[in-house]
């Protein structure tokens, strides 16, 4: 059984079929790419997968469970975490606290236990600190744990967003243009990190990307989206050499 199965996913915005009959199958542990020209509907797919938009029709199954039309919060609890095209950090909070917000739902102490500082507060806060620091060190952010998130350089902000998403303990990680705005060195480093996350955590990753070097370098399979419809899918190297795909990217 695939980890994520999307069948015939469609969304209509006031007559415009932004995504039309979209299908996707991702196996556990796979690194999967979703590519396509600007406005093809890639982020809309992400928004439907994470419950930001409710699909008009179609079905999304995560690990055998139907999650179609569920709220963002429920879907995160079922196991999908994401990053955003335009970075969305908690910019007035410290780097450590950003990750700890991601760990929030795994801890159980109540409001009262927090207000009165009962033993479980200390125990669970300590666990959270340890887990958050471990995650931060994976991304080489542990030195900056007390910085405000807004004071991090751009590349590190992207990494922090991935760390925060991983903190929610997802089965599937969605990355929306992780390399946007990065220079080639930073992109190369990011590729390594993404690879590392997959290997270290056994994570399944679906990413949207325009940087073909990154896609070609790390994705095992890709799906190409054009005008809301699937243009091609399959093994990355084959798809990227498909004349239809090249045409869609470069125009006639």
């Amino acid at each position: 059984m695939s980890l994520l199965e999307v069948n015939n996913l469609t969304i209509i915005f006031g007559g415009l079929r932004a995504v039309d009959g979209f299908n996707l199958k991702i196996e556990k542990g796979q690194l999967y790419g979703l590519i396509g020209p600007n406005g093809a509907g890639k982020t809309t797919v992400f928004n439907m997968l994470t419950g930001v938009y409710k699909p008009t029709s179609g079905k999304i199954t995560l690990d055998g469970e139907d999650i179609t039309g569920k709220s963002t919060i429920e879907i995160n609890r079922k196991g999908i975490a994401r990053t955003f095209q335009n970075i969305r950090l908690f910019h007035n909070m410290t780097v450590l606290d950003n990750v700890k917000v991601g760990l929030n739902n795994q801890k159980k102490y109540s409001v009262g236990e927090g207000l009165f500082r009962l033993p479980r507060y200390f125990k669970e806060e300590k666990e959270m600190d340890e887990k958050a620091l471990a995650l931060l060190s994976v991304f080489d952010l542990d030195q900056e744990k007390d910085f405000l998130a807004s004071n991090l350089p751009y590349g590190k902000q992207r990494k922090l967003e991935i760390a925060r998403a991983l903190a929610t303990n997802p089965k599937l990680l969605l990355l929306d243009e992780p390399a946007a705005g990065m220079n080639p060195n930073e992109t190369a480093e990011l590729m390594e990190t993404i690879h590392f996350v997959r290997d270290r955590f056994g994570m399944t990753i679906l990413l949207i990307e325009h940087d073909m070097k990154l896609v070609g370098g790390i994705c095992e399979e890709v799906t190409v989206l054009n005008f809301g419809k699937e243009l091609a899918h399959g093994e990355t190297s084959k798809v990227l050499n498909n004349p239809e795909v090249i045409k869609a990217y470069l125009g006639e």
Binding site: N92, D97, E124
Partner: peptide, 21 residues
């Protein structure tokens, strides 16, 4: 506490806050 961090996260970015559950 964890609840307070959740409250601050809503202030800073409500969409991201929802996305982490």
């Amino acid at each position: 506490s964890r609840h307070g961090r959740a409250i601050c996260s809503i202030r800073d970015n409500i969409i991201a806050s929802e996305s982490v559950g």
